[in-house]
Design a protein around this nucleic acid. Structure first.
Length: 209
DNA sequence: AACACGATGGACT
DNA sequence: GTCCATCGTGTTA
């Protein structure tokens, strides 16, 4: 297996507050077969009283993986077409996860392009949650998959990013205004492989750790 | 049992 | 900028 990076991230990495993990997820490598993607943009969901989260109605059949202990995938059907990939965080019963919104290719550009339709190039290949999942070959069968176990879909250590941008989450107009505005989207600054760059601002390092 | 709607993306004006 | 495919989920009755 091609891994283009460090060790598989251990369970303890995921079992922390969702915003901490979200920031630390930037730069890490999602690996599946020959495809390696560097995470460039994420969104945090869940935690306490988040009306944008799929956990807002409590435990249901769909969101069950979100209530598991951190380190598993949460994949859902979006608009009947897409299968966005989330990474569950925190302890059991927390109901929190991080949506992978965009990535940068590290390896496997050919299979990525083939899965994405053949003729695309540049950021439009991977700047959106549905695009990332499609490029990785992730579908509903990966729901609740353990990312800390080598083999299959896994998350490995990648190079740490420099400056980080943050801003409101995308596509949650149904949420409470406070939750729409909450700066829970994070991205690597000076990176072209990001979606909706306009609504992001530079952060101080004080927001994490 | 019926219904409204979505953590999007691609095509098109 | 606009429009809409597509289907499972959660809500309501």
């Amino acid at each position: 297996m091609l891994h283009a990076g460090g060790l598989v991230l251990p369970r303890a990495f995921y079992r922390r507050p969702v915003t901490e993990v979200a920031v630390d997820l930037l730069g890490q490598h999602l690996c599946h077969g020959d495809v390696v993607l560097r995470v460039t943009e994420v969104e945090a969901y869940g935690g306490l009283e988040d009306s944008a989260s799929h956990c807002r109605f409590g435990r249901t059949a769909r969101n069950e993986p979100m209530w598991q202990a951190g380190g598993v995938a949460y994949v859902f059907l979006c608009y009947g077409v897409h299968h966005p990939l989330n990474i569950v965080t925190g302890p059991e019963e927390e109901g929190a996860a991080i949506l992978i919104r965009a990535c940068e290719p590290v390896a496997g550009l050919e299979p990525i392009r083939a899965r994405r339709g053949g003729k695309l190039e540049g950021p439009s290949l991977l700047n959106g949650p549905g695009k990332v999942a499609q490029a990785l070959g992730v579908d509903l069968s990966f729901n609740a998959h353990r990312l800390y176990e080598p083999g299959g879909l896994e998350l490995r250590e990648g190079p740490r990013p420099g400056a980080i941008l943050r801003g409101p989450r995308v596509g949650v107009p149904y949420a409470h205004p406070d939750h729409q505005l909450a700066p829970l989207r994070f991205a690597i600054a000076d990176c072209a492989w990001v979606s909706h760059r306009d609504s992001l601002c530079v952060t101080t390092s004080a927001i994490h750790r």
